[in-house]
Write a protein that binds this DNA or RNA. Structure first.
Lengths: 232, 232
DNA sequence: ACCTGAACACCGTTCAAGT
DNA sequence: ACCTGAACACCGTTCAAGT
């Protein structure tokens, strides 16, 4: 029996920064980032919107916190991956860390946008970068090279690469023939590429533009190029 | 002498989609993308906010239009670059097209964010992609390879790569010694990298993390890797 | 055809006030 | 220490109405 709760009122869990952030992630997961408003967040957490300001300075700070929750989830997912046993193994470890990070973000499609909008790096981010650098240095790179590498990888180091425009419809869907015809008349290279790309997809299982494949292609291009720069 | 203008009233230029879009770009250039609101846009264009809806379906459509203006500016800037004289020249042409696109976007720092938020590709984008593909095919690539290449380049093909977190302060500024000390205790690799990177900057003219250098490093890594894949 | 005024349903945020 | 109510200054968007 809870001591103070008035009759008929759920003795509600007290608010906390942590609970607020987790609720925010939930809302974004369910309705997209645009549905995450201070008012709605207050509602789902069982309080007035204004109460949130006691746990979080403002909406910017809320998003900083949400970004950090995502990084924490990545760090957690990546924790199982063992350190490289020798210098040459750096590439494989880096690769699986990045693909694991990607799996996390695929569960939170709105997260890349939030991460990209943050400008300050939290301790969680610094820590993730630090161990990533450690892997490269263990692989034989200089710190200067590792620095360049981090910039070259960019958001890929965190498991995502923002896809730009997606001509010719949704990924996984075959382009509509008449759309293709319209494109072909004006943009011959584009049309030829679309035809070629569709047919080259293995088994055609995922149709045109399987992002996972493209992500790995770009990632391997970078990792292989970097690997060739190792001093020894 | 203007026929209908009431005394004392500037005979104002009539609104048009084009004038609206140009004004929108102006506002974003001056005050950032957050300052671009329908109400402010109406004001600077000398009309009520509601009048804008006659020329543009809604704010999403406004941003689509703004993105297109940026692409048009890129296409324009890139128009002078001659086609590659032989297959091997594909790389140099691609490189200077991309760096030229980058120059355009450096004048509109808010534009990458807008481009990244668009999902539909306009004819202007399709056209830009088409001639980019043309250069690759002229370089000897198959359409399938060119397709992968476009994905691997990603936003770099349009001249930008979203920088993520920027640990240790603004680019161009030397990291503060005591901040560095704080980092060093927890994140040894990061600290070592920062020290190394600062000293490796040529002449130290641009300090730590010159983005142009990093952009070109990543770009060349990709272009060189791709170049090695050319069939012949 | 083009533009406007009034109104609606939202935002994030403040501040003084409650327990 | 933690939460709230009322209020403020904004948003984007609608709709009927003006010229």
């Amino acid at each position: 029996m809870s001591a103070e709760a008035p009759a008929g009122t759920e003795p509600r869990t007290p608010l906390s920064r942590d609970r607020v952030l987790r609720a925010a992630v939930d809302i974004a997961d369910k309705g997209g980032i645009a549905s995450l408003t201070m008012r709605r967040l207050g509602e789902t957490v069982g309080a007035e919107a204004m109460s949130l300001y006691y746990h979080v300075a403002n909406k910017e700070a809320l998003l900083d916190g949400v970004a950090d929750v995502m990084i924490a989830e990545i760090v957690d997912a990546v924790a199982d991956i063992p350190a490289p046993p020798d210098a040459a193994a750096w590439k494989g470890v880096m690769r699986s860390r990045i693909l694991t990070a990607r799996e996390v973000l695929l569960r939170h499609p709105w997260a890349p946008g939030v991460l990209q909008s943050r400008t300050a790096a939290s301790p969680a981010v610094l820590s993730y970068i630090d161990t990533t650098l450690g892997i490269m240095v263990a692989g034989g790179f200089t710190y200067d090279q590792a620095h360049h590498a981090m910039h070259a990888l960019g958001s890929r180091a965190f498991g995502f690469a923002q896809e730009l425009f997606n001509p010719a419809g949704d990924p996984g869907e075959e382009p509509h023939p008449e759309v293709l015809a319209g494109i072909a008349s004006q943009f011959p290279h584009l049309a030829a590429m679309i035809v070629d790309a569709v047919h080259n997809t293995p088994e055609n299982t995922l149709g045109w533009c399987d992002d996972q494949t493209e992500f790995e292609f770009g990632l391997d291009l970078l990792l292989n190029g970097l690997d060739g720069m190792r001093p020894s």
